[in-house]
């Protein structure tokens, strides 16, 4: 396939390396981490999505099938990233799943106001966490049909 190199399936926005590692490990177990890009803050996530900064010149046609977004991020926080994604016509159609430690009602409410596609609270226990992550990966990558 021609576009194999550019093909992106998951954009993981996570500043905490241990959380990222656990998340990637869980996805790998279900063979879902092959086309995964991991960015470490909100600014980098926006650069990646809109082809700016370090990602200038990136082919924007290669949109991720799902964005896994933490809310607590350095520089630009997750809420702001979500707002920018859902504001912009180019990125509006990308499914965004908030994957966060927070269970705060206002975070949930605000995320849905901004147009989030799903809100997942990370369980503390690894078993539950691994199960959650792999389920959501399966769902968004295999079950769900994104717009073409």
């Amino acid at each position: 396939m021609m576009d194999t190199v550019k093909k992106i399936e998951i954009l993981l926005v996570e500043d905490n390396p241990t959380d990222a590692e656990l998340c990637i490990r869980a996805l790998k177990k279900s063979n879902l981490a092959n086309e995964l890009v991991w960015v470490k803050d909100g600014a980098e996530a926006l650069d990646f999505l809109f082809g700016t900064g370090a990602y200038a010149g990136r082919d924007l046609a290669a949109t991720p099938k799902v964005v896994l977004l933490d809310l607590r991020l350095p520089k630009v926080d997750g809420m702001e990233v979500l707002r920018r994604i859902k504001e912009d016509e180019r990125s509006r159609a990308i499914p965004v799943v908030v994957l966060t430690s927070s269970k705060e009602d206002r975070d949930i409410a605000e995320s849905y106001q901004l147009g989030v596609n799903s809100f997942i609270s990370k369980p503390v226990e690894f078993d539950a966490f691994a199960k959650t992550v792999s389920e959501l990966g399966l769902y968004w990558l295999l079950v769900n049909h994104p717009p073409r």
């Binding site: 241990t18 959380d19 656990l22 430690s101 690894f126």
Partner: peptide, 21 residues
């Protein structure tokens, strides 16, 4: 409470996760 909710859980998950690994 927001910090507790978010920041205390993350290291806990790391402890649990890496013990599991």
């Amino acid at each position: 409470s927001y910090s507790v909710s978010h920041d205390l859980r993350t290291p806990l998950r790391a402890i649990d996760g890496f013990s599991h690994i």
